[in-house]
């Protein structure tokens, strides 16, 4: 499943965790998807609040334990996102961390069945194996302040490098928007969404290049 036939267009899954669909984060998700579609690729949104996703890992979902079993909602979610080339996580940073919704999506869906031993030996078989991970985050604090607190680097370690390793992901990149508080002016929003648009296009180009290279070696 890691190499779907070349005639499928590449697919991006945008996972959104924000309680307000018309928030800046919601706009980021929309801008990303529009850019992907403009590049002739496919984009789907998983709006976790909108879906009423349950972020709490159940006891029987704990990896490597006796009686391990995935819940129906997790299986259904896997079916919805399986075979995607790019996983884009869009969320606000609250108290230095992702919202519970996003953390729960990692615990239950993206990390389903992955044991500490899998992580250590990089043997995890996940839906993200060999694919790309992108984090697009926002916070009310300034980027400068977060940097000073080592927050950006810490988040990158945890949600970037660690997941890259744990889920055998091929590449990680991120984009952060600071000072996204209530009542943003339109100009600021437009500027930032233009940055999202640009980044989405560069990711689409990279994915298309992967495809071309894979097609070339397969041929």
């Amino acid at each position: 499943m890691s190499h779907p036939p070349a005639f499928y267009s590449p697919r991006h899954v945008v996972v959104l965790a924000h309680p307000n669909r018309s928030s800046f984060n919601g706009l980021v998700a929309d801008a990303y998807c529009e850019a992907v579609r403009a590049c002739g690729q496919e984009a789907i949104v998983r709006d976790l609040y909108g879906m009423g996703f349950d972020p709490l890992l159940k006891d029987h979902e704990r990896p490597g334990r006796q009686g391990f079993a995935l819940s129906n909602d997790v299986e259904a979610e896997h079916d919805a996102i399986r075979g995607s080339n790019v996983f884009v996580m869009v969320y606000p940073i609250w108290f230095g961390m992702p919202p519970a919704m996003m953390k729960g999506y990692v615990d239950r869906v993206l990390g389903a069945g992955v044991t500490p031993q899998d992580v250590r030996h990089r043997t995890a078989l996940t839906l993200m194996k060999g694919q790309r991970l992108v984090n697009i985050t926002s916070s009310g604090a300034s980027k400068h302040w977060l940097n000073e607190q080592d927050q950006m680097e810490a988040l990158r370690n945890v949600l970037g490098r660690y997941l890259l390793h744990a889920f055998a992901i091929k590449a990680y990149e991120d984009l952060h928007f600071g000072e996204t508080t209530e009542g943003l002016d339109q100009e600021y929003i437009d500027q930032n969404l233009a940055v999202v648009d640009q980044r989405a296009r560069s990711i689409c180009a990279a994915v298309a290049a992967d495809r071309a290279a894979h097609g070339a070696t397969a041929g």
């Binding site: 709490l56 609250w94 108290f95 961390m97 919202p99 953390k103 990692v106 990390g111």
Partner: peptide, 15 residues
């Protein structure tokens, strides 16, 4: 610590 972070339950309690 699950995947280098607290469980969603704990981050939600902080939030």
């Amino acid at each position: 610590i699950w995947f280098a972070m607290p469980p969603a339950m704990m981050t939600g309690y902080i939030d």
